[in-house]
Design a protein around this nucleic acid. Structure first.
Lengths: 109, 109
DNA sequence: TCGGCTATTCAGTGTTGCTAGATACCGGTA
DNA sequence: TACCGGTATCTAGCAACACTGAATAGCCGA
């Protein structure tokens, strides 16, 4: 979609992925495919994997290696307690931002 | 407010400043003060100035130097036609993001 | 054997906001 | 005079993040 989305995704993509994982465990390839399906047409393959490594290192997710019938083993990520807490904080921050922007948008008309 | 906001502001702050300028011309110091007032408590002084330089270089704003009674001259920025166009695109991108996230938020409950 | 799909990893790049400090103009006060 | 606080801008260096592009690896069908 262009550079604007790319910049806006910084900080948000992390929340998006955590939100996905809050619904059900998932692995990188799957998440990327889902995102593309949802209109994030040019999310790069590598981006999601790097993000997953990051949130794993921070202890927000648990990982399990699961064999796949169709290729190399999958690394299935699931949100743990700390991750859920972090996700809630993400939603609070997100709400804060959207409120300010909504006001600005109305004021600007 | 913490690191989450910092990351989320990347890409968004630019739109915020453009939105402010769409209402009325303003200068850096003023914008920073207004942002802090609106709850962006730790927007750094330098951040806004750097952003203004950037959007000026991209031709989104016009600049006028205006003497101040209380200090060095102000650089007053105003949104031009190209800036307005860019701002509209920003709002479209922003809407796209908020829609996806709203869906995710509801789905996750 | 080769190409295509599944699946992950990694080094290098550009953009962005923050840190921390310098510079400058002005008024009031000791 | 000398100093300080408020106004106002600018800059170099840093950290975090998403993207680029490529490599690696397992599986299956032609």
């Amino acid at each position: 979609m262009g550079k604007q989305v790319t910049e806006m995704l910084k900080g948000t993509l992390e929340g998006i992925v955590l939100a996905i994982l809050s619904g059900r465990p998932a692995y990188g390839y799957e998440i990327t495919a889902w995102l593309r399906d949802q209109g994030f047409s040019d999310i790069a393959e590598g981006t999601v994997y790097a993000l997953l490594v990051r949130i794993e290192r921070r202890g927000l997710v648990d990982v399990e290696k699961v064999p796949s019938e169709k290729g190399p083993p999958r690394k299935v990520y699931s949100l743990n307690a700390q991750g859920r807490e972090y996700l809630e904080e993400f939603w609070r921050t997100w709400s804060f931002l959207t409120e300010r922007l909504e006001k600005l948008r109305e004021g600007g008309k």
